[in-house]
Amino acid sequence: MEDAARLLQLVVNGAASGCIYGLIALGFVLIYKATEMINFAQGDILMLGGFVAFTLIATWGLNYWLGAFLAVVITAAFGFALDALVLRRVIGQPQFAVVMLTLGLGFIFRAFAGIVWGYDSVGFETPFTNRTVRLGGVVLGQDNVSIIVGTVILCLVLYLFFNRTRLGIAMQASSQNQLAAYYMGIPVRTIFSLIWAISAGVAAVAGILLSPVSMIDVNMGFLGIKAFAAAVLGGFGSIPGALVGGVIVGIVEQLAGYYLPPGSQDVTSNVVLLAVLILRPEGLFAQNIRKRV
């Protein structure tokens, strides 16, 4: 019983951090499907979202829900501007130029956050901080449970948005066939910027959900590297794949931390990533497209 409870706790904790990876990976996938770009700064956008929420809630004393909402909106607007002002210019340049560009942007975001918010870890009071919930005799932190619940709700909202609203369907159309969407009168460029806005917003949600579990600090953007494992596991083209991949990575990481020698937790996600890329590069949820000649 002791072991089972322990295992459940590990799985829940893993699933919670996995949800964060999944949400970051979701941002990768959305942007990748639309613009064939990989945003290496996605983790840093999460960091910015967390800090904005910190300012609104802790410094300005806004209500948690209002502050969180505003933080997501502000980060989304930032994502929109990022695409409209910077990334749109490099469409058509080789893929590795985009890799370097977003890596460079990540450095700038980190320095910006360092200037504005400093290099110390910060946190803010949330409704879930330091509370627990009992589930079948197992004590779980509400913070972890809130991450899982929040992720599920967010995914439902996104699912409805992409499948039920005109805008969402237009986004899907633009991602699948840009030219056709353009000819149908869809403002493709704005749509792409909106997709950047959504993925920045999702990253902000992830940052806010994460804040009760781990503090917000300048270097939390390195979570993005772990999220790559999630995205690759999901096949880099599939939104549910990214989430499932995230949860898998999170749980494996927790279990490795408990059952394997100390230190192996740090490399788990990277080992998973390399293993997937080598053994099954198309990911668990494959869809393969070859270049036409």
Partner: peptide
């Protein structure tokens, strides 16, 4: 492209 970048990063 980026797959290689990610793999070498890992």
């Amino acid at each position: 492209g980026f797959y290689l970048a990610i793999a070498t990063l890992a």
